[in-house]
Simulated assay, not measured.
Amino acid sequence: MPPTPRKARAAIAAGGAAQALAARMATMQADAGLTIAMRMPILMQGALGDRRGQREAAKAVTEKVTAVLESGFAAGQAGALFWWGLMLSPPGSVNFAEAAADIAHSTLEPFSRRTSANAARLGRSRRRG
């Protein structure tokens, strides 16, 4: 039996959401790699007493803690919205794959924002100095 137009649209939407998620993760991984590569010399100087390196280490830790907290809150909020939508929608009208991708996007957003900002910031400081 061929898929109904509704199921086909749902599958296309889920595929698009999965592709967007994969692209975001690939970009985030590249930015994280650049950030680590540019941050390591600064952190090594901080280990030897350089104040800039020590500030960078403190900034890295603070950013990670706040990103984890924001990510957990965003995932909880997206999950709650999913359950409310499931409860209030007619049976069979919820696309589970698209909802899962939305939750994953919400969870990754704080990390993605910080990794791209750090890669840009550290790249600028490297060109200047």
Rank of each mutant, 00 (worst) to 15 (best):
T27C: 03
A14P: 02
A20H: 03
A37S: 01
A11S: 10
A20S: 08
A60P: 03
G76K: 12
G33E: 05
A60H: 12
F96H: 13
A23R: 06
G85R: 13
A32S: 12
P41Y: 07
Q45N: 14
W83A: 07
A23D: 09
M25A: 12
K64A: 08
I42W: 11
F111Y: 08
S71V: 02
W84V: 14
P90D: 14
P110H: 07
G79I: 01
A18G: 06
L48E: 11
T27W: 01
L43E: 10
R24T: 11
P2Q: 05
I36H: 09
R55H: 14
P3Y: 03
D50A: 10
K64R: 08
A67I: 02
E109W: 07
L48G: 10
R55E: 15
A99D: 11
V68A: 15
F82W: 09
R39L: 15
T107Y: 07
A100S: 14
V61P: 08
A11T: 00
L108H: 03
L86I: 00
A58F: 07
L86A: 12
G76S: 14
G46H: 04
M1W: 05
G53R: 04
L108K: 04
A67E: 04
G49K: 00
K59P: 00
A80T: 13
W83C: 05
N95C: 07
L21P: 00
M87E: 11
Q29N: 11
T27N: 13
P91W: 02
I12R: 08
A17G: 08
F111K: 00
L21E: 02
A67L: 04
G33R: 04
R51P: 09
A37R: 04
G46D: 01
A30R: 13
T62W: 13
V94D: 06
R51M: 14
A97E: 05
R6C: 00
A74L: 09
E56H: 10
